[in-house]
Design a binder for these strands. Structure first.
Lengths: 203, 203
DNA sequence: ATCGGAAGTAAGTAATTACTTACATATGAA
DNA sequence: TTCATATGTAAGTAATTACTTACTTCCGAT
């Protein structure tokens, strides 16, 4: 692996665990096994390094796209199970020992100060919500789903995954129970609601 | 207002917007309209100041308890509407121009480095989820809710509010639509699910 | 009027940090 | 070999930051 790539990986990792302000170029260089001066020769400044990590991972995140390519022949519930488990998997493992979702949360913090960061993050979130919305819209047209606002459904769906992965990242996996079981329970609620059928009034 | 309290308020505000590492004692003192040395005389160190802010706001947050005191005579959906809107209100306004939820997110970051912070945060989250769980358990016993895992229901419920308030905090209120309308749509999904009634298989 | 405590002013210290400069070494292509 | 390029070592700079010390001012209670 090239020095450049090692620095980018190290930066992702250190930014994720220390935050942008908390991460020092020394620590990043150390983690990448390069001299600190090499980092500056290749990336000029810490700010620019963040930008490069962002660009590289914007594409990496976009492979989430694949997760949204759901076969239409399966039923909605099965689709969501597969999708949910894939999202959880992508957020967790990958390289950088699952630091990627922690990197994302660091972006939330940093986004409030750097408009460029906010913009990239926002476009990424919008993209995913929109893609999911379109899927729901299709399901509604196919008569497989109630006629509800598809964006609200998408927002509800991703809320769960973002929040649980935040909790797991901060407090460890023991904080919540087994991931797969939890997801199944969530999808049960998401698809069927918490009410008893006979109590549902307006549908 | 005493100098001590002004410093605590200022600290909450600056910690929330700059993060713990990013916040400087100078900025906090400035925001509180006191000399920097006064801050140190009263709180000894920045770390200790964070601890004090935390302690004070742990109690303030706990007034969320009131939001969970739901009258049993109303029906579940009405309860949730009221609860949801109250949560949204508490997260937003209050004093410190709605910085309080941003302070909470800063705690998530800081919690990964400081076990004491993680513990306070974790106990706060657990407390709220437990309280909500108990409410759901009661509703299940009263036959008003399907027999689902109450903790999962609680987790699903709070996920939505935490995530949307994070999005509003970072990207502004325009990122999502009107808060009340959004909440209504969420509760519709949460209570009734997205599926059509006739498609629900196992209940 | 005076005395004590809370607050301010001013200056400084030691550490850290992003970033630079100057020079040396290694390596692979010509 | 030679030479360009990539990388390392070492030292330093200017700014920032948490925190301290010494002295002064303000103010309410006695």
């Amino acid at each position: 692996m090239t020095a450049e790539q090692r620095i980018l990986d190290a930066a992702l990792k250190v930014f994720a665990s220390e935050g942008y302000t908390g991460a020092t170029t020394r620590r990043i260089a150390e983690e990448a096994n390069v001299a600190e001066v090499t980092l500056f020769r290749k990336f000029q400044s810490k700010e620019n390094l963040l930008r490069e990590v962002l660009l590289q991972n914007r594409d990496a995140f976009s492979t989430l796209e694949n997760l949204f390519q759901i076969k239409e022949d399966l039923d909605l519930e099965t689709d969501l199970h597969i999708l949910g488990k894939n999202i959880a998997k992508v957020m967790k493992d990958k390289k950088n020992d699952g630091k990627r979702h922690m990197f994302m949360f660091m972006l939330f913090e940093e986004g409030r100060r750097r408009p460029e960061v906010a913009e990239i993050l926002s476009s990424f979130i919008q993209m995913n919500i929109t893609r999911l919305s379109e899927y729901f819209e299709l399901q509604i047209k196919n008569g497989k789903m109630r006629n509800i606002n598809p964006r609200s459904a998408a927002l509800t769906f991703v809320s769960y995954f973002v929040y649980t992965s935040l909790l797991r990242g901060v407090f460890g996996d023991s904080f919540l129970g087994d991931s797969d079981e939890e997801i199944e329970r969530f999808i049960d609620i998401f698809t069927k609601g918490i009410l008893k059928v006979e109590d549902m009034k307006t549908r």
